[in-house]
Amino acid sequence: ADTFVLKFGHFLPATSHHQRLIFEPWCEKLKSESAGRLSCQLYPSMQLGGTPAKLADMVRNGVADIVWTAPSYSPGKFPRIEAMEQPFMLPYGARKSNPMVWKFYEDYARDEFTDYKVLAMHSDGGMGIHTARKPVKVLADLKDMKLRASNRSSAKLIEALGATPVSMPPAQMTESISKGVIDGVLFTWNAMRDVKVNEVTHFHTEPSANQPALSSTVLTMLMNKNTFNRLPDDLKVIIERNSGPALNEFIGEVWDGEMDAAFKQTPASEIVQMSDADYQAMQTAAAQVADNWVKEVDGKGLDGEALLKGARAISQIQ
């Protein structure tokens, strides 16, 4: 029988736990379930060329068969799904938030991804503030701080909270913190150890339990539609079985495991506990971010208000 090798591209290094604990085992699973007929060739670190912003294009055009990326790395392309990235939207933890992201995708954002076979749509488990020299305990602490933002929504959030957002490639982030070019990052616990951010930041702001995450990034695993359609039916079934909510769940397990491990490794003295009132103050300060987002997507002929309401209803936080 024919064998199929899927070109799988992403932007993280080959040593990242995402590759070792998520992509490689997932590919291994396809391989064993198909008795070797379906396998992947992984291309970490953008080895297929281009920039992370182009990963979605690359899989749409067939340069790659599968990519893992964030829709918001290509700003403007996937406006609907950005509703899930609005401040204080999703809870901490991928196991909790991944089903919400998937439901929002199914109910509201399918139209943006009609060019793709969507394999997974999940969250980064929520971002927190990690700083090097000064703890962030109350809103005022953020004044004049320079924080690295990973996407558009978090940049706007940082701005709304009175700090200065700085965008820079992940590779420069750790060095920039250790040298004081920036004061800290808005970053997920999950990938802290991969980029060694935990070694250069000494204060990690934590809200009390059951508070939503400051900000989240939606991540996705996309497959080229033609590649999928060309597969024989039995292989299609294998892909279907290992994608969607099932893959989301698998990612969530691994993801939260890594988050917990990073958290446990952090000395308790470095955790900065925030009171509910102080956290509320941040939420109030950031309210304009979502409002502005609504106006922006309205300008694109979408119903921003409905999207935001839908997102809030699904994440059941406010």
């Binding site: 912003a53 294009d57 290509s74 700003p75 403007g76 392309k77 996407n151 558009r152 940049a155 957002p165 965008s167 694109k300």
Partner: peptide, 16 residues
């Protein structure tokens, strides 16, 4: 042309 159609913009400034 593709970027125009899909509305690609830059991250912070939203320059097309």
């Amino acid at each position: 042309l593709d970027s125009r159609e899909y509305g690609d913009v830059t991250t912070l400034l939203s320059v097309p």
